[in-house]
Design a protein around this nucleic acid. Structure first.
Lengths: 167, 167
DNA sequence: TATTGTTATACTCTATAACTATA
DNA sequence: TATAGTTATAGAGTATAACAATA
């Protein structure tokens, strides 16, 4: 969005990006890393998100639509195209004659696993530009930021780790 | 992509996201903030990027295609749709009878300015979850990371601030 | 001949509305 | 009657290939 970097002069020798600029650029950079790795397997971002969700779930079309924030008709088409490529399968629900469960094929799983592994090493390589201490500090701050934001939005960032409602 | 948060236990009371998970989630969060603000003006991400570029330039279709990493035919169609909505105009190049220059209309500029302002306040509000000292530290680390990455990729993060080739 | 831009065609992605089958 | 999913339709966004106009 910004064209000029808005280098809010630190008056030290090193120019520094503004906080908003920095976060925006970092966001686009990481996003593009995932896009490129997905594209290596001819996966669009939405197909990649679909496969990512299916890594540990067998949702119905309706559940998928909610998770992807898409209309059920869009979701149906998305699953169609993935199924046509042999990445996912539809299975009838044993309990509801109207519903289907979508799950990964072995091929779909190998694609998403490989893309995820490559993306992870991309991000690690990016972080390697910082010395170890800075890297740890950055991770801690990012985590703290996300935890605070999730708390405000009443989102559970750590499902499984006792959602809070316990003793 | 990750379903489980991979809370690499810090063995302290507070769970912390893994570095890759944290950066990925932060990236998606910031990306979604821009998407939502753009959507308030019925702008897609690619239309928003187009208008963002035009804020301080009047590129040709070919130049736009390079900046957006799109084919020139895709760019032509993108500009068509933006022009049909009155957001941009094509003007013939004074020096090359084949080329056109694309620029913002007043309407297009007001849309992109407003979306940018709202996005900026979203990111500032997000950062407000951290105490001021942490916020400054995070910005510095993000900036340092991007500067190092840009240097490696031989990209100039600060155009105008003397591209280096000087005295 | 080479370059700039547009057009024709095809496919993915998305939503709305209408439909089928089951509950 | 309500819900789960699909299909019909329309439009944005993208690429490839073919084209027109200009250089």
């Amino acid at each position: 969005m910004r064209a000029e970097p808005t280098a809010s002069g630190t008056s030290s020798g090193r120019p520094e990006l503004s906080p908003v600029d920095g976060l925006a650029r970092l966001s686009f950079l990481v996003h593009r890393m995932l896009e490129l790795r997905a594209a290596e397997h001819e996966l669009s971002m939405i197909q990649t998100r679909l496969l990512g969700i299916l890594r540990d779930r067998r949702p119905t079309i309706n559940e998928l639509a909610a998770l992807l924030a898409l209309d059920k008709s869009s979701t149906s088409g998305l699953v169609d195209r993935a199924a046509r490529r042999g990445l996912v399968v539809r299975d009838p629900s044993p309990t509801d004659g109207r519903a289907v469960h979508v799950s990964l094929t072995d091929h779909g799983r190998s694609l998403v696993d490989e893309a995820a592994a490559r993306f992870e090493s991309d991000v690690l390589a990016l972080l390697d530009h910082l010395p170890a201490a800075d890297r740890r500090e950055l991770s801690t701050l990012v985590s703290r930021l996300l935890v605070a934001h999730a708390a405000e939005q009443q989102i559970d960032l750590f499902p499984g780790r006792d959602g809070g409602r316990a003793t």
